[in-house]
Amino acid sequence: MDVIKTKGVTKIYNPDKIPVYALNGVDLLIEEGEFTAIVGPSGSGKTTLLNIIGGLDRPSGGAVMVHGQNIAELSDNQLIDFRKDYIGFVFQAYNLIPVLTAQENVEFVMLLQKRSKTERQQRVAELMDAVGLSDKMDRRPSELSGGQQQRVAVARALAPKPTFILADEPTANLDSKSTENLLDIMTRLNKEENMTFVFSTHDQRVIDRARRVVTLVDGEISKDERRD
């Protein structure tokens, strides 16, 4: 089943002055359960592509179908609701809410979704257990290590049961041990829950674990390698 489908996606910065083509006609199809790394040199358009797929940015041209919906046609508020229900984000700098505990961070999007308290509590316990932080539920982000914070971010991204997870350089700020730990968790979730993951990364350890590697160069897909 197609989860993400882009057709001729372009992104042009400064279209009226000196146009910069960040993406130049990207066609990409990602199916359910894929574990895909988008790689490429700096400035190749990895993050831009991820932002457009995630509905955080709008393309200058082309179509972005997510879960059968052309998200380029949605209004800002519709996009926010769409992201809440269908997409989980893991950011490079963790981006947890500093005034909430780990548990509350994971619970947050489910509250926005108006899920019942029982359902929320059950899901939080399940996810915190899955990322190995059951004993750190009441810690605030400042009381957790970088690796632990990123694991909470993964749990938060999974909490609303999204269609797929977008992770922008998720291991960039982690040491080797934390990176391996995080990748173990994500690989397991991918296999056990058939969760679709799409990464942008420079990290060879992530690339080595990916089952599909899409290489971007100058805003175009130069290579699409499957390792199944």
């Binding site: 995630g54 955080l56 800002d76 508020n77 926010i80 609701d81 992201r83 809440k84 229900d85 984000f89 950011f91 700098a93 981006n95 809410i97 500093p98 947050f108 999007v109 926005l112 979704q113 938060r156 609303p160």
Partner: peptide, 16 residues
């Protein structure tokens, strides 16, 4: 700013 952007990114609407 980054945190507010993140909140809207993960689904907190503008009214909230």
């Amino acid at each position: 700013i980054r945190e507010l952007g993140m909140l809207m990114g993960i689904g907190m609407n503008k009214a909230k």
